[in-house]
Each structure stands twice: as C-alpha cells, then as structure tokens.
Simulated assay, not measured.
Amino acid sequence: MTAVARIADDAQALAVAAELAAQFRKDAAERDARRRLPRTELDRLTASGLLALTVPAEFGGADVRSVTLAEIFRLLAAADASLAQIPQSHFVYVNVLRRQGTPDQREFFFREVLAGKRFGNAQSEAGTRHVQDIRTRLDRQADGSYVLTGVKHYSTGALFADWIPVLARTEDDSLHVAYVPRDAPGVTVDDDWDGMGQRTTASGTVRLDAVAVPADRVVPHHLTFAGPQLHGAVAQLLHAAIDTGIASGALAEAVEFVRTKSRPWFESGFETAAEDPLLIQRFGELSIQVRSAEALLGAAARSVDAARDDLTDDTAAAASVAVATAKVSAANAAVEVASALFEVSGTRSALDSLGLHRHWRDARTHTLHDPSRWKVQHIGRYVLNGTRPPRHGLL
C-alpha cells in the first residue's frame, strides 16, 4: 500500500491542495471527454493525506477547520469538479463517526482513514416516494449482528472505496449507517452512471444482497438529529464549495480563452477581444458573481466553525442558514458563469474538442443534488419569523 503523508495543519493542507489542483487541471478535459475514471488522481489525493484532514487531533489527525476544508474543495472543483465530488461523502461519513461512533469505532475507523482507506457512500434510492424514504433494511440477527439488503443509486465514491457507508433502517424504522467493506460478500458496485455532467464520478449503483454486518460496524445515525447538529451543514458546505469551484474554474477558462483565442467583434473597433467594452462589462458582472459566491462560502464555513466550537440550537440554525445561503448563491453562479463562458468566448468555444462545455454540464448536473428553492424558503422563514430550519440532514 502507498504511504500516506501526514498533514500537520491548515496552512499545509491548503498548500498541498493547491499543488494537486494545478496538476489535476491539466488533464481534466481529457478525462471528461473519454470518461476516464480518475483512479490514479484519487490515489494521489489519498497519498497526499488530504482525506484524513478531519480526523480529530486526539487520534492523530490535523482536524482542520471548515474554512480550510471548504477552500480545498473549491480549489479541487475549479480544476476538476468530478474529482472533487468523489471524496465529498468520505468527509460526511467521517463526520458521522465523530458524532455518533463509539470510542472503539472511532479508534478503528480513524486509524483506517489515516492509513489511506477511503469511504464511499450508498444512501440515495431510486423509485421511492422521496429522498428520505429509505427502504434498505438492516435486519438484526440472534447474535446481535445484522443482515443488510437493498439497492442504492447515485453512490458517488463507492467504486473507489475501501469502506461503503450504507444508510439503512432497522426493524423499528430508525436510521443507521452500516460501514461495509467494498469487497464484502453480497456487495456489488456497478459503474452505470451516465449523467451528462460529472461524468467521471462513477456515481453508479450499489446492490446489497444479504450482506453480513457485525454489530460494531453499525452507527445509530438517527441520534444525530435528536439535538443540535451540523451533519447537514457540513455536507451542504462541501456541495456549495464544489459549485463555487465550478464557477471560478469556468471564469478562469473564459478569461484565458478571450485573452488568447477570441477575435474582436468587427464593430468594436479594437484590435483584441479583451479591449471590447461590452466584454469588459460582462466579465465584471461575472467576476462579481463568482466573488460573491466565494465570500458567502467563506462566511458559511466560519459559521460552521463557530457552531462546532459552541453547539446549540441557535448556533446550529445560524450555520445551516449561512450554508444554505452560500449554496443558493454558488448554484446560481455555477450555472450562469459556465453558460456565459460561451457567450463571451464566441463560436469557437463551442467546439467539442475543446471540452469547455464540461463546466456547464458539471454545473447543471451537480446543482440538481437538492433544490435551491427549498433552501430559499428556509432562509426566508428564519429571517422573517426566526424559525429554525429542520433537522433532516439536507440543510
């Protein structure tokens, strides 16, 4: 197994992420065009130590702040949004263990993460009444162990995982997470994802056919929502960071294209496209949108950090609303800026061989994860009436 570096602090984490993002950017369009899954790149990401950043300090991790983690995801997504999305669930399920794992579970799994083991996810299901209608079952056996049965879709990270956290319900219908080895008997991971965007996330199907699960690999996730919690805020913060990264990456591509490849419109009277006052105006507007999304992402991450230091119903609510605000802004910026890339760059930018359309396809696909319109509703209720957002893990 490849040796995994230990990252000491937030500053080192950001430096490592920036270096990797620069490397990943070089072949991102080619990976997307060929749908070449980023196994090599993900192994490099793992070996860098970045996937262990949120392991608590008492277990040997760097335990970086949410501000740092959000910026790392933004950097990676600006380079390759598919690659950035793969470890999103990894950090979510490290967070589940921090919150609800027993001391022995935390000791075991955090040691696994520090050694370079990756978590995937198997939570969403297709064909149910809604996203919270989880029908995968954990049936308790006489010896205290469980048998896991179900089918999961959109299982980002599962194909590349060492452990697959599975969201399931027990006989009393309470929600649990079962941490299952990727190669356990009865586990099948299908690479059948065919989305128009996020092509290389391998967000396929996980089939669980009477999978044996020891009792000490099951975590009572329903208890997470019994009191103030940041589970949803952390998960959504990383999604917001991915959208913000897509927006900033698309803007950077547009700037480079207009500076080096675009011809001026003949009526402008200028020698270069970059001198066109109408293009200058549009780039100013797009820059404001991207910088606004980046600022709101940073503010949301700081709110999550503040709540983590002093977790109450009020601080958790403030963090959730701040993250929801950032997510709405980031989703709008990602879709608009990735689309405007073609508006400002002209006809040549639409050539399939250039791969610039991946930014829009990634933005349009990733922003469908959960609807912004409901986030706006919760923001409005909080601002107008002081109503705290619900504890369901998607805020």
Rank of each mutant, 00 (worst) to 15 (best):
S174I: 02
G157C: 10
D133K: 13
L14R: 11
L286F: 08
E294T: 06
D352P: 04
R308F: 04
A212S: 13
I288D: 12
D305I: 15
L351F: 12
E58S: 08
D183M: 07
H153I: 12
A28G: 06
R36E: 15
A178K: 12
H130I: 00
R259D: 00
A13R: 13
T205N: 06
Q236Y: 06
V234K: 08
S203W: 02
A295Q: 15
E336T: 13
I86M: 11
W163A: 07
D27P: 00
Q105S: 08
K327Q: 06
L42K: 03
R31G: 01
T260M: 04
T224V: 14
R308S: 04
A5T: 12
R308G: 04
R358I: 03
P181A: 15
A295F: 03
F73N: 02
H130C: 08
P87Q: 11
T315F: 03
R381Y: 05
A254C: 09
A331S: 15
A79N: 06
T315W: 01
D192N: 15
T325A: 12
Y382G: 08
W360I: 05
Q88R: 15
F225M: 03
V255E: 05
A47M: 09
D216I: 14
A363V: 09
P38G: 13
A300G: 07
V344F: 01
Q105F: 05
P38W: 09
A57Q: 05
T315S: 15
P103N: 09
H90P: 02
L384P: 00
D63R: 11
G269I: 06
R361G: 00
H359K: 13
R182C: 06
L278N: 10
A247D: 00
I288C: 03
V304W: 10
H378M: 08
V177N: 11
L384R: 13
A161Q: 03
L76R: 03
R106D: 11
V321G: 02
S248K: 10
A11Y: 04
R364C: 00
R217N: 03
A3M: 12
E253V: 01
G204H: 12
R98W: 00
V55S: 12
D314E: 15
A5G: 03
H378A: 14
A115W: 06
A78K: 11
A62L: 10
G197C: 06
R291Y: 09
D27S: 14
V213Y: 09
R373P: 00
A324S: 15
Q141P: 02
H231S: 13
V177D: 00
R169D: 02
Y154A: 05
S82G: 15
E271P: 00
S292N: 12
R182E: 10
R129S: 11
E343S: 14
F342C: 05
L51Q: 09
E41T: 03
G393D: 07
P214K: 05
A70S: 14
A324K: 09
A84H: 07
G101K: 04
Y146V: 01
Q123F: 14
F342G: 05
R39D: 13
H357K: 15
R381W: 08
P87G: 06
A52C: 10
S124W: 11
A241Q: 04
K261F: 07
E30D: 14
A70K: 15
G157R: 02
T201K: 11
T224R: 06
A18V: 08
I280C: 07
G204K: 08
D162Y: 00
L75Q: 14
E71V: 02
